[in-house]
């Protein structure tokens, strides 16, 4: 099947959006750096359950998100740690802490696996949110493709910025020389750099939903958009404020 045809959309969807979503769906289906294709699609499926999870709703109301015990509404295709990570990122991301990430590591859930999982969750969630914003059905997930994860870890990644190691602006060299191209390497771009392909997904999706990394310095209006930068930033700011995002 051809994904993201948007034939039933009452609104004209730009071709660059359709193309990028299709390409991401292809990458989603295959093995990544630390997860197989089947696991990556399972993470995507789990992200769709989180928004309606009763335990997540209850936990969001709790004073501490780490005391309450319970079971997520889950598809059951991932282990409990992965399921909890997916659900927290979708429904309670503002209360994720260094302590929790470290505890995950102690239980055998590596920083690398966490970063790739987070990259999948946020990207699928974002594509779904686009459809939801337009009142459209969610796109069926792709069929997984067999293959082994590459287990590639960039040697330049170091700790000290956030909860997990990242590649510094100066460290993006060699195979990673493309990661921050056209930018100064802001922390939000560096955030997923422990899994370089997650940064590449970040860049590609941002370039169609928002603006390209290279275009960030254009504070007036991008030629292929109908809204100007102030209009974009008003939407962006309101979304960030509702999510209580300080960054």
């Amino acid at each position: 099947m051809t994904h993201f045809s948007y034939n039933d959309s009452p609104y004209p969807i730009r071709d660059d959006i359709k193309l990028e979503y299709r390409q991401f769906w292809q990458r989603l289906a295959g093995a990544g750096s630390w997860w197989s294709g089947a696991e990556r699609v399972a993470i995507a499926a789990e992200s769709r359950l989180a928004s309606h999870c009763k335990f997540c709703a209850e936990r969001r109301q709790a004073l501490s998100p780490y005391k309450l015990q319970g079971q997520h509404d889950s598809a059951g295709d991932l282990d409990d740690l992965a399921v909890d990570a997916v659900h927290r990122i979708v429904t309670d991301q503002a209360r994720i802490s260094q302590t929790w990430v470290d505890q995950m590591t102690d239980k055998g859930f590596s920083n690398e696996a966490y970063v790739e999982l987070a990259g999948i969750v946020v990207t699928v969630f974002s594509v779904d949110e686009f459809n939801r914003a337009l009142g459209l059905e969610l796109e069926p997930l792709p069929q997984p493709v067999t293959g082994e994860p590459s287990r590639y870890r960039p040697s330049q990644a170091v700790g000290g910025t956030g909860f997990v190691p990242m590649i510094s602006a100066e460290g993006a060299t060699g195979a990673e020389s493309d990661l921050y191209r056209g930018s100064r390497g802001a922390n939000v771009l560096r955030a997923l750099s422990l899994v370089p392909d997650a940064v590449r997904d970040w860049r590609r999706l941002a370039s169609v939903q928002y603006i390209s990394v290279e275009g960030m310095t254009n504070l007036v209006k991008q030629d292929d958009r109908v809204i100007n930068r102030m209009q974009m930033e008003l939407v962006a700011g309101r979304v960030s404020a509702i999510n209580e995002c300080f960054y």
């Binding site: 503002a94 939000v188 970040w202 939407v235």
Partner: peptide
């Protein structure tokens, strides 16, 4: 843009 920032805030946090 809204979808993009639903993603960005979750990456940052």
């Amino acid at each position: 843009v809204a979808a993009n920032f639903q993603r960005m805030v979750r990456i940052a946090d």
